[in-house]
Write a protein that binds this DNA or RNA. Structure first.
Ligand SMILES: Nc1ncnc2c1ncn2[C@@H]1O[C@H](COP(=O)(O)OP(=O)(O)OP(=O)(O)O)[C@@H](O)[C@H]1O
Length: 711
DNA sequence: GTACTACTGATTTTT
DNA sequence: TCAGTAGTAC
């Protein structure tokens, strides 16, 4: 009966059995946070008699959601199916599908991925009258995404736009949003923002969900953004049974606008909240935990937490310095071989973690040489492959003719003689009619200012669309895919391409994935499939069964645990990454990334660095990561720590004072231009506080940060 | 309109 | 080092 509480310590029990009111759980890695969420849900259902239908659990990744559901299925059986369990994005997508009408969004709306968003953005920049080459699309995209994460629509952003660049962005944002709306499409951030606005402006819709969700639970709360927190407050507004779980030291997504201040705000917004601390670590051996503590305690912007290992004994951390990345990889491969041969571990117990995907290459080569089975959770995601996106674009277009980006993608793929000029004519014509281009084609297609071969090519394409569109509503998904591939000539064309066979295989695989949805009634199967494809990424498919070594980025490793962990590339420029060296905040986040990586390990932890590494062309000498200095020597075996602490980065003993003063305008390679607010000496450097036009206030170390005076 | 070549420019992390 | 693009030739 109370087996649910048996495997829990007193604090965990308290967190599981405190059912009423707001609850904040703050705890370090391996302290059982996720376990508490799972058991709390099971307890709510089994002991408190709460209907699973009335519980909503939010996770950080789809994979985490699936794992949580699997664990709950074991505890609750079939009842678990009625739980709502997913990421904020998936949760919002579902709400918008059902309730979007209220804000003018058709239930067949399309979710644009990064690439699609960029295409829209480029067009928005042009249409707003700016030269897309003069503005960095990534900067603008990041700014718009940041605005949305802070719940600012175009008008709201405009109101805060002071500098010229911000004004430009405000106009582009406005245009970008119009284009999305016209295409009945949303980007990732819109999923959150639009749901928030829907709830805000349509109380009757909000009430429905407020009433339903008696309990809301949020995992990895330290990596939520303001929009997500606002949504959580809306949904929990009626019952106020909101339970959030997080660890500020594991916050590693601030670049995606996550904000740890949500934890502080939670205490302010719910002053009656109960706070539970979990202070026992069940995962790692004491040396691993001690080493990780050593690293994280060097962060200044942090509140120390107690974290006591439950386990005893344990091997010391192994530090290894290799000559270059190839030898680093070989060493890892050799060590894994040794562990497996001696029966200490199996392949599937080992994981190799790195800062960037590019680092996986040397490892893969070494594993191939050594005949070690492995799996990389890659950067080139399956669903982003050209041929996969082409087919998906055809499918999207059939359910959402307003989707102009998809139309542009497929209208001349395979080549049909509809070039840039014909496409422009169609787009312009549609614009004057106030309709979507594909709708113009579907309806009559007359009046397009074209003649001759381009016009007949366009007419043939219109016929194709007219033939295929009704099939989306009558055929099952797999049959539909087959017909589309045949009728569009895509299959034939693809197979005639250079690497056509291999790319065709990807479509066969996609078809296999789609078969899961083939039994849903016609348009539903397609809609569900398209949504899944937009929200699910490859690492969500991480299956634990096969006996292979796993290769992951540090970000992907969040929330996982492995008996044996190898962390490679512990060098200045790699970890901390050279693109994250400019502000103390960025460097602290890099340090947290290392902390997250180290605390994945249960039994054995290896830290590696290479003396030389391939960067931008040639092989270059490296310096050991500054974070290695903070490893307590008594828990480390391997290269003497003294070696790991030559002078911190390339700082000459006395740096020159900055050639600017408070009030001057300066330029930074990444943050753009801004105003110097303060300068103060800091060690050998000067800490310069700059109010950037776009990037906000940053503290930078001159001359480490590339700042130059302008004007 | 299409296909190829030569050049440029920029290099993190992802729901 | 390489990928994406702009420009050119057919
Ligand atoms: N009371 C307990 N008794 C035994 N094992 C426990 C207990 N609590 C947690 N564990 C184990 O500790 C490990 C870590 O738990 P869990 O993944 O829930 O921690 P977490 O706090 O979510 O970690 P992280 O923040 O690093 O993701 C798991 O293997 C879990 O089974």
């Amino acid at each position: 009966m109370s087996t649910l509480l048996d495997g829990l310590n007193p604090n965990q029990r308290e967190a599981v059995t405190t059912l009423e009111g707001p609850l904040l759980i703050v705890a370090g890695p391996g302290s059982g946070k996720t376990r508490v969420i799972v058991h709390r849900i099971a307890y709510l259902v089994r002991e408190a008699g709460v209907s699973p239908y009335r519980i909503c659990a939010v996770t950080f990744t789809n994979r985490a959601a699936r794992e949580m559901l699997e664990r709950l299925q074991r505890l609750l059986g079939a009842q678990a199916e009625h739980l709502t369990c997913g990421t904020f994005h998936a949760f919002c997508a579902g709400i918008l599908r059902r309730e979007g009408k209220a804000i003018g969004l058709a239930s067949s709306f399309t979710i644009y991925d990064e690439e699609d968003q960029r295409a829209v953005l480029k067009r928005a920049v042009e249409e707003a009258g700016f030269d897309p080459k003069r503005y960095n699309l990534s900067t603008i995209h990041h700014a718009i995404s940041g605005a949305k994460a802070r719940l600012l629509g175009p008008e709201g952003y405009q109101a805060h736009a002071h500098t010229y660049l911000e004004q430009v962005i405000a106009q582009v944002y406005q245009r970008y949003q119009t284009l999305l709306t016209q295409s009945q499409a949303v980007d990732f951030d819109d999923l959150l923002l639009l749901t928030y606005q829907l709830f805000r402006d349509h109380p009757q819709v909000l009430h429905k969900y407020q009433e339903r969700y008696l309990h809301l639970l949020i995992d990895e709360f330290q990596d939520t953004n303001p929009a997500q927190y606002a949504l959580a407050k809306q949904v929990a507004g009626k019952w106020r049974n909101i339970c959030v779980v997080g660890d500020p030291d594991q916050s590693i997504y601030s670049w995606r606008h996550a904000d740890i201040r949500n934890i502080l705000d939670f205490r302010k917004d719910f002053p009656d909240c109960k706070i539970v601390y979990l202070e026992e670590n069940y995962r790692s051996t004491p040396p691993i935990l001690q080493a990780a503590e050593g690293v994280i305690s060097a962060n200044t912007q942090r509140i120390a937490k107690r974290l006591v290992p439950v386990r005893t004994g344990g091997a010391p951390i192994v530090l290894h310095e290799a000559y270059n990345e190839d030898e680093e990889a070989s060493w890892v491969a050799g060590e894994i071989e040794r562990l497996v041969r001696s029966g200490v571990a199996r392949y599937r117990h080992c994981v190799v973690l790195y800062r960037t995907h590019a680092q996986s290459r040397a490892l893969e080569e070494a594993f191939l040489r050594h005949g070690i089975p492995y799996r990389v959770v890659g950067a080139i995601r399956f669903y982003r492959r050209r041929e996969v996106k082409d087919l998906l674009a055809y499918l999207r277009l059939l359910v959402n003719p307003a989707d102009t980006i998809s139309l542009q993608r497929v209208v001349n793929t395979p080549p049909r003689g509809i070039g840039q000029k014909a496409q422009d004519a169609l787009l312009r014509h549609a614009q004057t009619l106030g309709k979507a281009p594909a709708e113009v084609l579907l309806q009559e297609g007359e009046g397009i200012p074209l003649s001759g071969p381009p016009l007949s090519a366009l007419r043939r394409f219109a016929d194709l669309l007219r033939r295929l569109t009704p099939l989306a509503h009558s055929l099952d998904l797999v049959a539909l895919m087959d017909i589309v591939l045949e009728e569009t000539g895509y299959k034939e064309w693809l197979l005639a391409q250079e690497d056509g066979e291999a790319r065709w295989e990807n479509l066969v695989e996609l078809r296999g994935l789609a078969s899961e949805f083939k039994d849903l009634p016609p348009p539903q199967g397609l809609l569900t499939f398209l949504e899944r494809v937009s929200l699910v990424s490859e690492q969500d498919e991480l299956e634990g069964q096969q006996d292979v070594v796993t290769l992951l980025t540090l970000h992907q490793a969040k929330g996982l645990e492995f008996p044996v962990v190898f962390l490679v590339g512990l060098e200045e420029g790699v970890l901390p990454h050279y693109r994250s060296l400019d502000t103390p905040e960025e460097i602290e986040e890099e340090r947290r990334l290392l902390y997250v990586g180290m605390t994945r390990a249960q039994e054995r932890l290896y830290l590696l660095r290479a003396f030389r590494r391939h960067l931008a062309g040639g092989s270059q000498p490296t310096l050991p990561s500054r974070f290695l200095q903070d490893l307590p020597p008594q828990v480390v075996r391997g290269a003497p720590p003294a070696q790991a602490r030559p002078t911190p980065p390339p700082t000459p003993s006395k740096a020159p004072p900055p050639p600017f003063k408070t009030g001057d305008r300066v330029r930074h390679a990444r943050f753009g231009e801004g105003l110097v607010v303060a300068i103060s000496p800091s060690g050998n450097e000067h800490e310069v506080t700059v109010q950037f036009d776009l990037a906000g206030v940053k503290r930078l170390l001159y001359p480490i940060a590339p700042l130059e005076r302008v004007g």
